[in-house]
Simulated assay, not measured.
Amino acid sequence: MQRAPGGMTLRQKMAFSHLTIEFDDRVLTPRPWTAMQSQWAAELIPDAPVGRVLELCAGAGHIGLLAVSLSNRPLVCVDLNPAACELTERNAEVAGMRDDVEVHCGDLTQVVPSELFGVVIADPPWVPAAETARFPEDPLLAIDGGDDGLEVARLCLEVAAERVADGGHVLIQLGTSEQAHRLSSESCSTPLHLVEIRDGERGVVARFDRVA
């Protein structure tokens, strides 16, 4: 990542499907292959229960923005990092969707609006803390998933279980199918049930549905 004169962060742009996404080194560089999660969400949204789409751990907002741009529903983005929230707002504006995108910055267990969502998208950090040194270019906040890589993912599923409507869908991006199955075994007491896992280029996306 280059720096502007004076050490300021230099914002960059990249194509993410048909969107132009701005980012800088305060957030994880958007990965093109994560568009699979957006496209899967877009497939589910038309028949999902009424409600906005919720994106947890939004980063630059690219996954959620692409999903709703393909399916025409309003979007709520949540991230702990103020820089991510700033960039999501900017990317929504560039995409011409600012009026349909609401951004909340803070702890995802506290700032998610009290409403039911038809679809929840989450891209939490999933790298075990002991392995984060393998990715020195990535911001630690964006990749550190705690001891087993699932600390933030568990919080995402807890929030999703409370906020997704009956018959709604949760798509969560993880590192491996083993992580997805572990989350599934831990969430057996919740109304979320693992339905499908799709392999991506460098990770997996797991679909959990809420059963009444």
Rank of each mutant, 00 (worst) to 15 (best):
R202P: 00
E201N: 03
T190W: 10
G168S: 10
R182Q: 15
T176V: 09
S189H: 14
R198C: 02
I197R: 05
G200E: 07
S187V: 02
V204P: 09
R182H: 06
D166L: 14
L194G: 08
V204R: 10
E196F: 00
L174E: 02
V205E: 01
R202H: 14
I172S: 08
R202I: 00
L183R: 03
I172M: 10
A165K: 11
Q173P: 01
I172C: 09
R198D: 02
R182K: 13
C188Y: 01
I197G: 02
R198E: 09
A180G: 14
Q179I: 02
H181L: 03
C188P: 00
Q179W: 03
R202N: 13
I172H: 06
S187T: 13
T176I: 09
S187H: 10
R198P: 04
Q179V: 01
L174H: 04
Q179M: 05
S185P: 01
A180R: 03
L174F: 06
L183S: 03
D166Q: 14
A180F: 09
E178N: 02
E186P: 06
R182G: 00
G175A: 10
G168K: 11
I197L: 02
E196G: 00
V204C: 11
R182M: 03
E186F: 05
G167M: 13
R182P: 00
H181F: 11
T176D: 06
G167P: 11
T176P: 07
S177E: 15
A206K: 04
E186W: 04
T176G: 08
E178F: 00
S187A: 15
R202C: 04
H181Q: 13
L194A: 07
S177N: 03
H169Y: 10
L174Y: 02
G168T: 11
G167T: 12
G168M: 09
T176H: 05
A180C: 10
I197V: 15
G167F: 14
L183G: 03
E196T: 06
L174V: 04
G175Y: 07
A165F: 07
L194Q: 06
R198Y: 01
E186M: 08
T176S: 15
L174S: 04
E201C: 10
